[in-house]
Design a protein around this nucleic acid. Structure first.
Length: 462
RNA sequence: UCCUCGAUAGCUCAGCGGUAGAGCGGUCGGCUGUUAACCGAUUGGUCGUAAGUUCGAAUCUUACUCGGGGAGCCA
């Protein structure tokens, strides 16, 4: 059993005997001795190892201990003469598991562009930034589960393959095992999905919300946390074809409770990550975005601004700023409008609610004014919409009408309507794009750099 | 999908009609405490692909491929 480097750096004492295993990040050689820094991925900071010339096989070792090589080092901790670390490891025995030829190893001990790192997705987790991102990503995921579990929410595993194409959230990927060389056709020359694996056309899920609603109707408070797929041809720094989404759903809850949960949720996640990954967050603040810590503390310490869509339109109309897209009641808010509100006007997350029913989904609850629905979006500075949620329409007749209004067939959603027919209750929930949360948290500008293996149009390598 | 910018050494880039450059990296040598180590030497290229203009193309034109930024769709 070896020691984790993060534990050594945080609480190691001089004279302790330890063994570490990891990968060489860099080596500095002098006459008769050398320093190397080793990372095992547990922390941003490496452990400095001192290699003395009297080590067994020193000359051979020093040639092979290049950036990228995997090693095991046993030795004694000593307090360091150097300024950058309190403690270092005086090596007694070094084992090399695998060398990394410096002529061909793609990672150099210098800064690489994120674009380049994306071309070497199998090695980029070994870099400082991607390493820090992955640790923060993990801390976020843990915090999400902790938050909901502490509140008594049940984690629901909603299906990844779904036959319902009426969730109204963008293009779907079809799942098939038909012979693509010889696709069966019907008499009218359409693809005959009755011969497909499920006997009908099936897709990758675009949202677990409708299924989460089913489960909320028996367990009250539930959440989903899993992968989601969109076949949109979106080429932006904020979109992925495969991303993770968090979707709580609460029975006996209205739009107020929904907003309260969203705010409490974000505060909890930020606080938890700051507690668990202070070094990584410090790193992002120094090297990626100087406002990361300020933003995090802003979220934790201030209450979110809450306004209605109508108030948002009024504020935008009064803004002494030209917008490229028109502002008018009934039109959706554009990126520039959301950014103005969150970044310029309020300078903190805001929650906008009660949007015109025409621009929102069929399942959102119709307000008494008959013009708006109980939808709420949390808009964050720099990212824009990070959470989108609503109180769901629980009244059978109104829901049926809304489905028809939006050109959908009620019979396709028979089970969804059944939930309103039998023991319906007011309920609400929201969806949070997990990668956008990690982006917001770390200040990383491209969403492809906050997921280990990004899938985007024309890119599914590894 | 649209707009826009880009693709030159392993990486980051300069060169923008006259035959290829820098920094970093790599290699070799030097240095008892380095930490983006330092000092000296050295290595490095079908200039994204294809066609065209020209005496001559990395440089101009067109198409394509891939990438960045912005927009739409959205999370």
């Amino acid at each position: 059993m070896s020691n984790r480097i993060i534990d050594i750096l945080r609480s190691g004492n001089a004279d302790e005997t330890v063994k570490i295993q990891g990968w060489v990040r860099t080596k500095r050689e002098s006459k008769g001795f050398a320093f190397m820094e080793v990372s095992d991925g547990s922390s941003l900071d490496n452990l400095q190892v001192v290699l003395n010339g009297d080590l067994e096989g020193y000359a051979d070792l020093i040639k092979k201990l290049n950036t990228g090589a995997s090693v095991s080092v046993s030795g004694v901790l000593v307090s360091s003469h150097g300024k950058k670390q309190k403690i270092e490891l005086q090596a007694i025995a070094v084992t090399i598991f695998g060398e990394a030829d410096p002529e061909t190893y793609p990672l150099q001990k210098k800064r690489h562009s994120f674009e380049y790192l994306r071309t070497i997705g199998h090695l980029r987790p070994r870099t400082n930034t991607i390493g820090a991102v992955m640790r923060v990503r993990n801390a976020c995921a843990t915090a999400i589960h902790n938050f909901f579990q502490e509140k008594g929410f049940m984690w629901i595993h909603t299906p990844i393959i779904t036959a319902s194409d009426c969730e109204g959230a963008g293009e779907l990927f079809t799942v098939t095992n038909l012979n693509l060389e010889q696709i069966p056709r019907t008499e009218t020359n359409k693809i005959d999905f009755s011969q497909d694996f499920f006997g009908r056309q099936a897709y990758l899920t675009v949202s677990g919300q409708l299924e989460a609603e089913i489960m909320a109707m028996s367990f009250q408070n539930v959440y989903t946390f899993g992968p989601t797929f969109r076949a949109e041809n979106s080429n932006t720094s904020r979109h992925l074809a495969e991303f993770w989404m968090v979707e709580p759903e609460m029975a006996f809850c209205d739009i107020e409770g929904d907003q309260n949960l969203a705010e409490e949720f974000l505060k909890y996640i930020f606080r938890s990550v700051l507690e668990n990954c202070p070094e990584d967050m410090e790193f992002f603040n120094e090297r990626i975005d100087k406002t990361v810590l300020e933003t995090a503390n802003n979220i934790i310490n201030n209450s979110f601004e809450r306004i209605t869509y109508t108030e948002a339109i009024n504020l935008l109309e009064k803004a002494d700023q030209k917008f490229e897209y028109p502002v008018s009641w009934g039109l959706d808010l554009q990126s520039e409008h959301e950014r103005y509100l969150a970044e310029e006007l309020f300078k903190k997350p805001i929650i906008v609610r009660d949007y015109p029913k025409e621009i929102k989904a069929f399942y959102m609850r119709l307000n008494d004014d008959n013009k708006t629905v109980a939808a709420m979006d949390v808009l964050a500075p720099k990212i824009g919409e990070i959470i989108g949620g609503s109180q769901r329409e629980e009244r059978l007749d109104i829901l049926q009408q809304r489905i028809i209004e939006q050109g959908m067939k009620p019979e396709d959603l028979w089970w969804y309507l059944d939930l309103r027919k039998y023991g319906t209750v007011p309920h609400a929930g929201f969806g949070l794009g997990f990668e956008r949360l990690v982006q917001f948290m770390t200040g990383m500008t491209n969403i492809r750099d906050v997921i280990p293996f990004p899938r985007t149009p024309l890119n599914a390598s590894l």
